[in-house]
Nucleic acid binder design. Structure first.
Length: 423
RNA sequence: GGAGCAGUCGCCUAGUCCGGCCGAGGGCGCGUGAUUGGAAAUCACGUAUACCGCAAGGUAUCGGAGGUUCGAAUCCUCUCUGCUCCGCCA
């Protein structure tokens, strides 16, 4: 959520930034209009309430002195009615304002490349180079099926399309990748491991920006009005919702393994085979809470931490900076890490690292107080995949496949998998 | 799932039966000052958040939402959370 005062006081700048996303104005003009009406009605109503509160102090005095308060009482009854009707109108404006504000995305930072879509993304760096195969390589879904470590057909039987069953060394590999990532981030990058609930309530989903705009993308459990988490970002970021942290606590680094659940509505026909786009996938997430002045450098080190996974696994990848048109709703700046996927013949997203500035903190109410005292300020929140586990497994199977159909286990994973080859 | 009890200012707690003197008392903690050679102890003062307003000031918040009333921490309804007992269960 953007700061309403910033919209009020620096409208032109905010408008330019929001519209640089090239997907319309997101109702920003309406926000400004509602706010104007809201504030004038608020001032008026509060004046009436001040009157009412003053009279409420008079009434017991009059009664105590044996006086007749009936005139004042009648007057106050009328005032009470007037306040009630104004408050009703006020509440409606407040709701409309909040709804409108919740639908305005974050403002991209000034150095984010401007453009309509991924074609305007800026490549930052490439690490490693795609392997040249001297045999006819297979896609990971064929490798997995042939080795009997991935079973898409039976997954479809018990759940449906876009699900997978991992089996034997496939399941072991998936688990190994999770442990490898968590060990790296907790052991070497200073992150604390969190194992959060996989279902959250509506407030949490709103706090990180998934609601109200993207309800259709998520699995909902009506009985308790819970949502299956689409990413660990949601439970982990909301850990500190409505709290005021001590400055000394910051920065906080959390990492969490969770499954992620997504409807993938609107992606019909895209990536229908394999592990790339499924309704349930595993992910290790990195989340940071920082002071405002350090968040951009923290984004760089967060991205580096995620990249380190690919470096250790010796998988070729590149980092791109998303353009304004491709940027996620809540983000001000995002680096995507893309791994080389031979079956696609291109780099495929495996991590998305974002600096949300105070956008999520404002929604979720996450603040901190500086050591010297003073007013609480909003923290900055960041997160990134570190990494998507299923896509990592897909990349491993494809990049490490051998001519005989086996797959070499990369050095860094051997102690976890307990084998040198998957055969 | 059933029964009972409880949720108040960073923490502990008073207030709720009998609505106004309660944005709210006390203790602890914390901050500033006094005292001291220094410290402990003691004493004094201060110590929530948000919004509106140029300001003076105003408004809101006693788990959350709604209601009764001129007026609600206090009364009513719903709801969430915690604890105890019962049922069920990995």
């Amino acid at each position: 959520m953007l700061d309403i005062r910033r919209i009020r006081e620096d409208y032109e700048t905010v408008y330019a930034a929001v519209t640089s996303r090239t997907h319309g104005d997101f109702g920003l003009p309406e926000v400004r209009d509602i706010d104007t009406g809201y504030r004038s009605l608020l001032t008026e109503t509060e004046g009436l309430k001040a009157k009412q509160n003053a009279a409420s102090k008079e009434i017991p005095k009059i009664k105590k002195e044996g006086g007749d308060a009936s005139g004042l009482l009648a007057e106050m009854k009328a005032l009470s009615g007037e306040i009630a009707s104004k408050e009703g109108a006020l509440r409606e404006l407040e709701t409309r304002l909040r709804d409108a504000l919740l639908n305005v995305p974050n403002t991209p930072q000034a150095d984010v490349p401007v453009g309509e879509d991924e074609n305007a993304n800026r490549e930052i760096r490439r690490v490693g180079s795609p392997r040249a195969f001297d045999f006819e390589f297979k896609a990971h879904w064929d490798i997995g099926t042939d080795l009997d470590i991935l079973d898409f057909e039976r997954a479809a039987k018990i759940a449906g399309a876009r699900f997978v069953v991992d089996k034997g060394l496939g399941a072991r590999l998936e688990r190994s990748v999770v442990n490898f990532m968590l060990d790296l981030h907790t052991g070497e990058h200073g992150f604390t491991e969190i194992l959060p609930p996989f279902m959250v309530n509506r407030d949490a989903m709103t706090g990180t920006g998934q609601l109200p705009k993207f309800e259709d993308d998520m699995f909902h459990i009506p009985a308790k009005d819970f949502f299956l988490i689409p990413t660990a970002e949601v439970p982990v970021t909301n850990l500190f919702a409505n709290e005021i942290l001590d400055e000394a606590m910051l920065p906080v680094y959390y990492t969490a393994y969770t499954p992620c659940f997504r409807k993938e509505a609107g992606s019909a026909g895209r990536d229908t085979r394999g592990l790339i786009r499924v309704h349930q996938f595993n992910k290790v997430e990195l989340v940071k809470f920082t002071k405002p002045e350090t968040s951009n450098e923290e984004l760089e080190s967060l991205t580096a931490a995620a990249e380190e996974v690919l470096k250790r696994l010796e998988l070729p990848y590149r980092v791109v900076e998303l353009s304004t048109g491709d940027l996620g709703f809540s983000s001000s700046k995002t680096y995507d890490i893309e791994v080389w996927m031979p079956s696609y013949g291109r780099y495929v997203e495996i991590s998305s690292c974002s600096n949300f500035l105070d956008f999520q903190a404002r929604r979720a109410g996450i603040k901190f107080r500086r050591a010297g005292g003073g007013k609480p300020e909003f923290v900055h929140t960041l997160n990134g995949s570190g990494l998507a586990v299923g896509r990592t497994v897909a990349a491993l199977l494809e990049n490490y496949q051998n001519a005989d159909g086996t797959v070499t286990v990369p050095e860094a994973l051997r102690s976890y998998v307990g084998a040198e080859f998957i055969r």
